[in-house]
């Protein structure tokens, strides 16, 4: 690649992104503009922004590489990303979430839960969880972006990482959520174009869909023995039922990431940004196409790369990449795609990193200002400025974590974040949207149990994270406290059901207290489902407890 041409393209690209952030800035007049983009975002912008936020550089490179090792079984995650991550998130949850957030005048995910259950504790605790644990997830995306800039633009890793952090922080601070969503949507379009070309080129390179799959099926004897021992049965087969590989595939990737997206604050709050249910229905169409070409492409291209490498070099993908699965996608793309595509793919990966980081630090900023400080009555003035300070604190924390956390810990940040969010937030969110008799105590107990149990599981039971953190080893002298299969079962797998059961039991035990939040329930559900619409209320407070 011609480096000066590439740098020129990146500068033009960043110019367009900066102009979009400036456009967001010009349209941001009120706190509602800054926090929920004025609740009048175009459905195409919403769907592209949602998708681009969900898909980071590591999702394309990391998941594509993982699929090259594990095989097509990961397609179940692509299936869930479309059905749950798009259809359920927009057309089912989103419709209620949007209406309820408008009824209760809630501008963030934790504040929505807090107002719905009439509990400051829930809002502050949820905001605190985001503010404490999200920076680690942000830092892994930042690191991915920094390494990527180092490899492609030949800039120093430290400069690349800091440059990325500063650029994104500027977009968020100046443009608010409008700036974030406009830049996301442009980034999403670049990603969509790049991934569509990659998918069709890949199947074309191996002679088509059926021929490609048949060729890959015939390569079963090429699987490395260590993977066979772990349960690998071929790239076009699921791993052996109950094997370590099967548990990893099902519990972490499919369940954790597939279901976990529903409870991701930066994703769930996207439904609050559109004008009405019509926009959400339209977003389903755009989101369904976008997600297919993101996760579908990564999980189809990854396995197929084995066939291409075997035919051209006599080796499977992981052998060509010398054991580093993160190198499989870049090497494969370098081999099969024309040179001009490499420029486009560079912008695709840069887009994936920027769009994810911007949404994460926006949510961190609002967790700091809206969910924590405002609910603790620290300040009622200057909501936008407080949020901007929160953005700065969030991005500085992410940069510091990128340097001080060991690589082994940071690599687990995505699964950790998705897992604790699903276990902590999902039951309370479903209850908020569908269960009028859910009580404040039930929701609070569920959130605390979900976060507590999943964090305990990651620190002491699940081998990947427990070994990386080393806490179990330091305290009890062994890597994990329980034997297999607990070592390979994602904590979400048990923390989420237990959190849901606690929610039900505590709500039932405290069922007489529902009358105390009757007004919040009535207002929250107004116009949701079958109840007739009531005018939205402004400045609805919460009580402590």
């Amino acid at each position: 690649m011609n480096l000066s041409l590439l740098i020129g393209m990146v500068i033009v690209y960043l110019g367009v992104m900066s102009w979009l952030a400036f456009l967001g800035n010009r349209q941001t007049r009120t706190a509602e503009d800054y926090l929920v983009a004025g609740r009048n975002v175009h459905p195409a912008v919403m769907a592209l922004s949602y998708g681009a936020t969900m898909i980071s550089t590591s999702a394309i490179i990391g998941f594509g590489g993982a699929a090259a090792v594990f095989g097509f079984g990961l397609l179940w995650l692509a299936f869930l990303n479309i059905v749950v991550g798009i259809f359920v998130a927009f057309a089912i949850f989103g419709v209620r979430l949007r209406k309820m957030s408008q009824n209760l005048d809630a501008t963030t995910f934790p504040t929505l839960l807090g107002k719905r259950y009439h509990s400051k504790f829930i809002a502050v605790f949820s905001g605190l969880m985001i503010f404490l644990f999200m920076p680690a997830y942000t830092s892994i995306v930042l690191i991915g972006g920094g390494r990527f800039l180092q490899e492609t633009l030949k800039v120093d890793y430290n400069i690349g990482l800091l440059l990325l952090a500063v650029i994104v922080a500027l977009y968020v601070i100046t443009g608010g959520l409008k700036g974030v969503m406009y830049t996301d949507a442009f980034a999403g379009l670049v990603m969509l174009f790049g991934m569509i070309l990659l998918l069709f080129s890949t199947y074309y390179a191996v002679g088509g869909v059926v021929d490609g799959h048949q060729g890959l099926s015939a390569m079963k004897d090429q699987i490395p023995p260590p993977l066979v021992e772990q349960g690998h049965q071929g790239w076009t087969s699921m791993p052996a039922l109950g094997s370590p590989l099967w548990w990893t595939l099902i519990s972490t990737l499919v369940m954790g990431v597939g279901i976990g997206v529903l409870a991701q604050p930066q994703l769930a709050m996207r439904s609050m940004t559109v004008r009405g249910t019509r926009s959400l229905y339209r977003s389903v169409l755009i989101g369904g196409v976008f997600m297919f070409f993101m996760t579908g492409t990564a999980f189809m291209v990854g396995p197929i790369s084995n066939l291409y490498f075997h035919e051209t070099q006599g080796k499977i993908a992981i052998a060509v990449a010398e054991g580093n699965s993160d190198l499989i996608m870049p090497i494969f793309i370098n081999r099969i795609m024309p040179e001009w595509f490499l420029y486009l793919f560079t912008l695709t990966l840069l887009s994936a990193a920027i769009s994810t980081i911007s949404s994460l630090i926006h949510v961190q900023g609002t967790a700091f200002s809206e969910d924590i400080l405002r609910n603790l009555n620290v300040s009622r003035e200057g909501r936008m400025n407080l949020s901007r300070i929160g953005v700065l604190v969030g991005i500085v924390a992410a940069v510091i974590l990128a340097y001080i956390l060991p690589g082994s810990v940071i690599a687990q940040a995505t699964a950790f974040w998705f897992g604790i969010c699903a276990a902590g937030f999902l039951p309370a969110l479903v209850g908020a949207l569908y269960w009028r008799n859910a009580t404040q105590a039930g929701a609070a107990a569920s959130i605390v149990t979900g976060f507590g149990l999943s964090i305990f599981g990651f620190l002491f039971l699940h081998q990947k994270e427990a070994a990386a953190f080393g806490l179990a080893k330091a305290l009890f002298g062994k890597e994990t406290l329980l034997p297999y299969p607990w070592t390979h079962v994602d904590p979400l797998f048990y923390a989420l059901p237990i959190s849901a059961v606690v929610f039900g039991i505590v709500s039932w035990l405290t069922r007489t207290s529902v009358s105390q939040i009757q007004e919040q329930v009535r207002q929250g559900f107004a116009g949701v489902g079958t109840v007739s619409a009531l005018p939205p209320i402004k400045g609805q407070g919460m009580k402590k407890g």
Binding site: G71, F87, H213, L285, G288
Partner: peptide, 30 residues
Amino acid sequence: MLGMEDWTITIAWLGTVLASLFCIVYGAWD
């Protein structure tokens, strides 16, 4: 089917394509 060895993988591949088509049809519209 579709050249896959395991029928559950065939379903996953087809399911992913059909889920995307379903979203298109469903969306197809204040």
